[in-house]
């Protein structure tokens, strides 16, 4: 492994960490409601704007703006769940047939709405978020990395670890997993499934917004900035097994590395296509993903 390979691997893993922040939330939503949230990228976009505007326009220190971006994303997630997701499980048994279609339409519509609303209200111009630290490139052996990116990666690791621990061991985390496994069973055991869904959406929106905030100095917030990260997270949840959090984390890191090497050794122009091809192959031949359990709904 030459120096450039080490550099590619490390930078790919770091990219994967940011993917994981997005994908965990998407995977949790799939777990609990069995839907894909097509507006997930817009939580990311809103986070990037929230951080940038709070820090620049209000002059709030970046260390305060960062958690605030999480709060904004969580609020948006909660609102989405309350207004649009409730019909998926509260009553409405009469149209169970078109349930999946309803979910695709409203989340797709919400995505278009948020992109265009931001485009009109804030404008189509890109905003560069303030970096957490003003250091130029740091050289660690063969690896070249900016100070902000290194710090952001560290924060991402911490947030991912905390989230994974909460889902694994906390009271609400256990309830969320119970609802994901069997909604009816969980509700019979006294779990408030509506509350569990709301918490998942808040966590999911918050994490995606946090990812957007962390990356805003690099990605330059613009209305459609969430589109590609969202597609990456779809790829990841499929690879990792829809609904599996450990699967999402591992698949995120894997995709980051694959893209990093693919862009250099295969084709830079088609770097975004590799993951999509993987996604299609997986859905066609192994829909349960790498770590998902095999099962079929009738």
């Amino acid at each position: 492994m030459s120096g450039i390979d080490v550099d590619l691997a490390v930078n790919g893993l770091i990219t994967g960490l940011f993917y994981a922040l997005m994908a965990i939330g998407l995977s949790l939503i799939f777990g609990i409601l069995k839907i894909v949230n097509f507006a997930h990228g817009e939580f990311y976009m809103v986070g990037a704007y929230a951080y940038t505007l709070i820090a620049l326009a209000l002059g709030v220190p970046v260390w305060v703006a960062l958690p605030l971006a999480f709060v904004v994303g969580a609020a948006l997630g909660w609102l989405t769940e309350r207004t649009l997701m409730r019909p998926l499980y509260a009553g409405y048994t009469s149209w169970g047939l078109m349930r999946d279609e309803y979910a695709v339409i409203v989340t797709f519509g919400l995505s278009l709405f948020l992109i265009n609303l931001v485009d009109k209200v804030i404008g189509p111009y890109a905003y560069r978020g303030p970096p957490l630290v003003e250091t130029s490139r740091i050289v660690l052996g063969p690896v070249l990395i900016s100070g902000h990116r290194l710090l952001a990666a560290g924060i991402a690791i911490a947030v991912i670890a905390i989230t994974a621990a909460l889902i694994k061991w906390s009271f609400w985390g256990q309830q969320i997993r119970a609802v994901s496994q069997n909604r009816l069973g969980a509700s019979l055991a006294g779990i408030d499934t509506a509350k569990a869904s709301a918490i998942v959406f808040m966590l999911s929106g918050g994490l995606a917004a946090f990812a957007g905030a962390l990356l805003s100095p690099v990605i330059n917030a613009s209305p459609d900035v969430g589109v590609f990260p969202a597609i990456k997270s779809y790829i990841i949840v499929v690879l990792g097994g829809m609904g599996s959090v450990p699967g999402a984390i591992i698949a995120s890191l894997a995709l980051g590395v694959i893209e990093s090497f693919g862009a250099v050794y295969l084709s830079y122009q088609y770097r975004d296509a590799f993951g999509l091809i993987l996604l299609m192959l997986f859905l066609l031949f192994r829909p349960q993903g790498l770590f998902g359990e095999k099962g079929r709904e009738v």
Binding site: F30, K34, I35, V36, F38, R99, D100, E101, A103, V104, I231, Y234, I235, V238, M242, Y270, D272, A273, L276, I277, L279, M280, L283, L284, P287
Partner: peptide, 20 residues
């Protein structure tokens, strides 16, 4: 495939074609 799986597969197909 049905539901979200179908939506995701066709969406990736769409993006791959456009990228090509």
């Amino acid at each position: 495939l049905a539901g979200p799986y179908l939506a995701l597969t066709t969406l990736s197909f769409a993006e791959i074609m456009r990228l090509v």
